[in-house]
Design a protein around this nucleic acid. Structure first.
Lengths: 145, 145
DNA sequence: CTTAATAGCTTGCAATTTGCAAGCATTTTG
DNA sequence: CAAAATGCTTGCAAATTGCAAGCTATTAAG
């Protein structure tokens, strides 16, 4: 099976990531945290895609169990919880941006601004840093509706 | 919702890619084509993960419908079909390699060789080209078991 | 030419997962 | 204290999945 080729990348483990994120909703939850600043249950429910409440609860539990997000009580409102991405979760930004790039390129219904496409095409690593810093700088803010 | 921030990447379309690939099997099928040289029905069935035959047929149909793969008759054996990645499918290599990289980094059961991790970490674009060229050079070969 | 074997599916059915609606506990607001 | 909001949980119908069996077309063997 394995050829004696110096450059051949024969090993390609994806089962781990697909075990955690291989469904319709998990990636979207993380995307909503990164790009829409979602960090509360209600924000995810109100998000465009319309995830069912039991599915959301299940996925948040699963993502927490696998260490991609953390939960804590909102210090400003005790009936709310705050969900935040961990380092492990943030490290999915490159994967997510590649998927976004592919979608933007092949989905004719998607309009990605030229600037964003420029970043994704020519300065990918910068784009990753921008998204990451945006997230880290804006989280925990009192009102992010 | 959209802040007036020059660098904010607010639009993040992932629904398209998740519509096509947002399940347990689709990514694995493409991975098996890229990394294991799978191009026949039986090869996918015999692959480690054990996809059910009806699911495989459904996903191959779906991937074909969305233009990620093509089907043709095997010129050497009329009862076989050959499945090949299109440009659109090959353009998923960066996404897949990012997911592999993340899995390799966070799954302690996964052992990625240092050389592969080096490529993924330091020379990502090269790794993409290597995988792509490997695929293009090796497909259509008479026997790829 | 007949029979058997192989590849690529399709079909039937049970089990799991999803989606929707309703309900419930805790906290805050009036 | 009553009402509303938030973050869930529960029940149930509908959709999806997984397994086994079967079916068709092509090839191989006798």
């Amino acid at each position: 099976m394995t050829k004696n080729n110096t450059y051949k990348l024969t090993v390609c483990p994806m089962t781990y990531v697909l075990e955690i994120l291989g469904d319709k909703w998990s990636f979207l939850i993380i995307r909503d945290m990164l790009f829409k600043g979602c960090c509360r249950y209600k924000q995810f429910i109100d998000s465009d895609e319309g995830v069912a409440t039991n599915i959301l609860a299940d996925r948040l539990k699963k993502l927490t169990k696998h260490g991609l997000i953390t939960q804590c009580k909102d210090p400003e409102n005790g009936r709310q919880k705050l969900y935040h991405l961990t380092e492990k979760g943030l490290d999915l930004i490159p994967s997510i941006l590649q998927l976004v790039k592919w979608s933007g390129h092949y989905d004719c219904n998607t309009v990605l601004s030229e600037k964003i496409m420029h970043y994704l095409n020519e300065r990918f690593d910068e784009a990753v840093e921008i998204v990451r810093n945006e997230y880290l700088n804006n989280r925990h803010q009192p009102d992010q509706t």
